[in-house]
Design a protein around this nucleic acid. Sequence first.
DNA 1: GGATTCATGTAAGAGGTTACATGATTAT
DNA 2: ATAATCATGTAACCTCTTACATGAATCC
Lengths: 180, 180
Amino acid sequence: MNNQRTTDYVLLGVLMVGPKHGYEIRQFLDDSLESKWHISSSQMYSLLKRLEGKQLVKSFLSVQTKRPSKRVYSLMPKGKEAFLAWIEQPVMHVRNLRIEFLAKLFFIDRLCLPGGNQVIQKQIDALSSILAKIQKAQSLERLPFEKLSLRFRQMTIEAHIQWLKTAVVEFIEQNKHYSR
Amino acid sequence: MNNQRTTDYVLLGVLMVGPKHGYEIRQFLDDSLESKWHISSSQMYSLLKRLEGKQLVKSFLSVQTKRPSKRVYSLMPKGKEAFLAWIEQPVMHVRNLRIEFLAKLFFIDRLCLPGGNQVIQKQIDALSSILAKIQKAQSLERLPFEKLSLRFRQMTIEAHIQWLKTAVVEFIEQNKHYSR
DNA sequence: GGATTCATGTAAGAGGTTACATGATTAT
DNA sequence: ATAATCATGTAACCTCTTACATGAATCC
């Protein structure tokens, strides 16, 4: 239901580090994004093929003598563009914030991408505008159950915004020395 | 990705109100759970068949002269049991809390089920124990990114618990006159 | 000698979605 | 006349998962 192709972008992100074959991508994900991003290997292989079909990625077969041949994937310019565009665009479904936004922050950190503060700020703005709509709806709503439901969203989003603000302070400030 | 059969329970819940045919169930969901639970009609019809296969629900065909025949579904004892067991059991995936727990509260409200306070309290307890694990992990974690990730979960769960506490006060207290 | 690592996949299925088919009746 | 309502479904597709196949190499 899910993440409308976020997995694609995660794969592109892993290839931003450098060319890798499937098995290596999997290891990378297991090591670094372990708790945040799990992917079944069968799905990963099929996504890689699809990404190649879309020309976001290219591959060559590396034949080895003592190990099975492996197909090494690397980013195409179009893939890099798509990845960077994804990083900048705020997550619009609150439900996906944790998994998707954390993945973005992970790559900003790992790849030392510039503009991390802006990405976080954009996400704060996106959530703030959702929050404003909810608050408006709350003031009009009479039914107690609906109010309860709206308050759930309100309180959740407020917590997310608060967290994003701590992220600006602790995460990005700390990484200033990387990006300079 | 999703809700491991929560939809089944929502359908059972709708039938708790009384026997209904598919189209009516759909109308009920659109009217009452609109924003909280959307289901495509094709999926609904196939779920109803599956529920009947599991003996949670039974049906008969009601032939009409001026309208297409309709298949009217009603709850079997086994279905009622399964539904009530679902209501009592707390949601264990924080990600599903909003959609799934709100659905439970909706039915508690609509069906005037007793023990609403207990259901909320159980959910608070479940979240509190998840929170405790996260706090333990936080104290051991050194990597800044992992800490950030854990704090996201911590802050989200704290907001949910706070919300649940307001739910006890506003929602259930108000309904005391129903259940007595 | 047995388990694990390396490496890629296929097949089946779960749980959804959208688009479409059907066809009468009733409201505008 | 045409649009919406009533009523149930099929077909195709999407994303993702688990289970399984394969087979050499290396670790213990």
